[in-house]
Amino acid sequence: MATKPMTKTQLVAALAEEMGEDKKTASAALDAVCALITKEVSGGGAVTLPGIGKIYCRERPERMVRNPATGEQFKKDADKVVKMTIAKALKDSVNE
């Protein structure tokens, strides 16, 4: 049975406990990591989180798409999309 995803508040509390710090410090650390990842990926780079995976930006070419409601086909401009490749270590830990 699927459980609800961990909220930021729950993540900060768990991080604070793991670090042995207060929640304010853990929240600042989490915000700093998120800001660094956003800055790097939006600039076209990639970030590898050891044991978790790699977050990167990929360009999608211009392509033809179809509106499922009307069946009308139209050209969609090229754009960028954020992708994540999951590390083998995380996949293996989930499947144990």
Rank of each mutant, 00 (worst) to 15 (best):
A2I: 11
T3H: 11
T3G: 13
T3W: 07
K4C: 09
K4N: 14
T9A: 15
L11P: 02
V12Q: 09
A13H: 12
A13K: 15
L15D: 08
E17N: 13
E17T: 12
E17Y: 05
E17C: 05
E18D: 13
M19T: 08
G20S: 05
G20M: 02
E21T: 15
E21M: 13
D22M: 04
T25G: 08
S27M: 12
S27G: 14
A28V: 10
A28E: 11
L30N: 10
A32Q: 08
A32H: 10
A32C: 13
V33L: 12
V33R: 02
C34Y: 09
A35Q: 02
T38E: 13
T38G: 10
T38N: 09
K39S: 10
K39M: 08
V41G: 00
V41D: 04
S42L: 11
G44S: 00
G44Q: 01
G45E: 04
G45S: 05
V47A: 00
T48M: 10
L49T: 01
P50V: 14
P50K: 09
P50N: 08
I52H: 07
I52L: 15
K54I: 03
Y56G: 01
C57A: 14
E59D: 13
R60A: 06
R60I: 03
P61W: 02
R63D: 01
R63K: 08
R63Y: 04
V65G: 13
P68M: 11
P68H: 05
P68R: 07
T70E: 02
G71P: 01
Q73L: 10
K75E: 10
K75I: 12
K76Y: 08
D77Y: 00
A78H: 02
V82W: 03
V82F: 11
K83R: 05
K83I: 03
K83G: 02
A87E: 07
A89I: 11
K91N: 09
S93Q: 09
S93L: 07
S93R: 14
N95I: 04
